[in-house]
Design a binder for these strands. Structure first.
Lengths: 203, 203
DNA sequence: CAATAATGTAACTAACTAGTTAAATTAACT
DNA sequence: AGTTAATTTAACTAGTTAGTTACATTATTG
């Protein structure tokens, strides 16, 4: 089943609109105009608003979870696995900022309305982290820690970083703090990775 | 000017509704019903939906920033200041989970539509952190680090933790991972504080 | 107590919004 | 070319939603 040009155009426009305004704030008439298609075309390609939202989330979450799992599985050392986990998640999130916005909104609702296929992708990432941490513990490299909190540290920090780009640029911080200048995602990921790994390593 | 019972009842109901459904998802008729007041009473006490939202955010953000600033200023040691910063923020957030939900939604939009008074409160918290970090560096206790990323680590992790209570309870994690059991806010705050302080301390 | 101010309410309105319909256009195939 | 299937469109509909109005009730005060 080849997806048409219009199908994808609507999906891309909807991704942006849902990220910017949330489910309730995204207006189907605006979407039609933004994509340059007639509103009825949206309903021709996507059953209804709820289904369109599911389609958006599925298309957004699966590649990110895939990338993280694939990259981590290439490594064998727990420290390297964890570093790769954090950096791959950061990189793929930054490549598509809509992911961070949509995930944050969903988590703000307690994740209750999140479509099952999207939730499954987040669980894949959490399970992968859990495996890595247990491997590290088994090899007496890592001390015991709550994987869910580590997961939240990674996801929470990166989401906030990625989605706050406009906010960051409006911050009236004086030149006295030059650390704030290099606010690119790679250095953020590096700092998060170092921080987490450092706290996990057995002394 | 003494705020009436009804004014506060509407404010409380609106806080919950905005936290659960976001600005666009919160329906004024639902709010009236939930509070047991007539819809026109809402508009008698609060100019319109946007003003009500501002009132909610102001009432929610100011006490949290106040609490963090007050607690941190009681300490003199940078390490103790940072630990208090993280634990006070965690405690006050957990006491009012609506704060986390609303802040996450606002950050998902890039913080662009956040009312000025609410944004100022987040800046107070960030500036306070910046001061603590600089004090620690001046005393040769902390190494240099990006305060914004530390801020995001604290806020992102705690927000996610607080607002994910329903999500956490739905996680089908097997008993093999008993770390997940003690998912209370105090132990989360403890782990975050240790992690961050540990990574900042000069070796 | 009477008058006035403050608060509460049912019913209404105008604009908006998700989704539909039936007809038109374009592409695919024989 | 001619027929059928896929796609697009303008116009429409029914339900929803923020905000209003004119009136009723309750406090307050001189």
């Amino acid at each position: 089943m080849v997806k048409t040009n219009t199908f994808q155009k609507i999906l891309d426009g909807a991704t942006l609109l849902f990220a910017q305004h949330g489910y309730d704030g995204a207006i189907m008439d605006d979407l039609a105009e933004q994509c340059g298609v007639n509103k009825a075309s949206i309903y021709y390609h996507h059953k209804d608003k709820a289904t369109l939202y599911e389609n958006v989330l599925t298309a957004l979450f699966i590649p990110i979870a895939d990338a993280v799992v694939a990259a981590v599985e290439l490594e064998t050392d727990p420290v390297k696995k964890l570093d790769t986990h954090i950096k791959t998640f950061s990189k793929t999130s930054a490549e598509n900022p809509c992911f961070a916005s949509i995930l944050m909104r969903e988590m703000a609702s307690g994740g209750v309305n999140m479509p099952a296929r999207a939730r499954e992708q987040m669980q894949r990432i959490l399970f992968l982290l859990n495996q890595t941490l247990q491997l590290g513990q088994a090899q007496h490299i890592f001390q015991s820690a709550n994987p869910l909190i580590i997961h939240f540290m990674i996801v929470g920090t990166i989401n906030l970083f990625v989605s706050s780009t406009p906010f960051r640029q409006s911050l009236p911080i004086t030149g006295q703090c030059d650390q704030l200048q290099n606010s690119n995602i790679e250095s953020a990921a590096e700092q998060i990775s170092k921080t987490i790994i450092n706290s996990l390593l057995l002394k």
